[in-house]
Design a protein around this nucleic acid. Structure first.
Lengths: 189, 189
DNA sequence: AAGTAACCACACCGGTAGGTATACTCGCAG
DNA sequence: CTGCGAGTATACCTACCGGTGTGGTTACTT
């Protein structure tokens, strides 16, 4: 039996780290496996031993990115919005703004969607799940805040949230997040 | 002096047509110039005679795509929402839904943004201008509808609009447009 | 002592990418 | 008749891509 590659080794972690930065900053298609291996101070052989293929590495990158964001958001809640309430919904926008801090490459998931043409790419499932999880989070936040109609409202807030990301990056509109906070306050009331 | 290439010839139009479909459906990076020339029933030589480079062809594709969308929207207004008013804002969403009709590849501009890594790509300016034009349109629609605070409200509506596109495609959420219409009605009141 | 997981160095492969060069045909305007 | 813009056909170039194979070195286990 072919052993399933285990990426969780020193070199594997370095590769994932480097791939994360490069994929996000320059785009998935624009970054070759040679470059990743080089920058991670390892070899292409090791990369393929750990991850099996570039597609699998891309999927791992997306999973890792989501995990990091979720940890970041948890920490943000813990330190800046410790009690449930409608303001936690707005706090997500604050966190997102801080999460980027300078970078203008936009949502990694949306970008990946654009680059992953094939429907059966292993990263596609990660994308969908990630967006759906974001939506579920908004609904949960509104529910625990005791807001009526949390389901429908959470979906609407999610739209605003995603739109803000697109307009800030692809649209180059600096005020997008301020507008989004205003829109969310208007919606949630 | 080097003559600026004029793409507006029979072969040039065919190339732009084919490139438009292929770039959108499969992604810019995934489509080579050889394939475009082939499908357009012409040669790579002619392609480069008309457009100069792939990057320039990409920019032309984006310009063309925006022009088509604007014509489509004008026609939609003319036949389905002939009188100014708040409902015209919602009608934009209807038009967008019809504009895609089956395709699930999302916003061509957002996708292109993800693929065009370099800041100085000739297509980047087209993207920004396109998104800003969309925003200006929403503001204009609200202004002519006599809505107070049209500036701020138009920006918010624009966020919802962009978010709906992302969530329908990358997020795979079928209800995104319905939610967007509800959100817009709630915002505009 | 043997096995094995992790790793490195390096060479190699077929395929394809964007882009250029040469040479020729056709129709049209001056 | 000439010049030229548009187009076709085809060969070619360099560069890089994802992926594989070989061989050898550590270090920890059993």
């Amino acid at each position: 039996m072919v052993r399933a590659p285990n990426p969780d080794t020193p070199a594997g972690r370095r590769i994932l780290e480097v791939a994360g930065t490069l994929f996000y900053e320059r785009g998935i298609g624009a970054v070759g496996v040679d470059l990743i291996a080089d920058e991670a101070g390892t070899t292409k052989k090791t990369l393929y031993d750990r991850f099996g293929s570039k597609d699998a590495l891309v999927a791992a990158y997306l999973r890792d990115r989501e995990q990091r964001w979720e940890r970041f958001l948890d920490e943000w809640f813990r330190t800046r919005a410790p009690t449930p309430g409608p303001e936690r919904v707005v706090a997500v926008l604050d966190a997102e703004e801080a999460w980027w801090a300078g970078s203008r490459r936009g949502c990694a998931f949306v970008n990946a969607f654009a680059e992953l043409g094939e429907e059966d790419h292993p990263g596609r499932a990660v994308l969908r799940a990630g967006k759906q999880r974001a939506r579920a989070m908004f609904i949960a936040l509104l529910t625990e805040a005791g807001v009526a109609n949390a389901e429908a409202l959470g979906a609407q807030v999610h739209l605003v949230y995603e739109g803000a990301m697109v307009n800030l990056t692809a649209g180059g509109m600096d005020s997008a997040f301020d507008e989004a906070r205003a829109a969310i306050r208007a919606l949630v009331g």
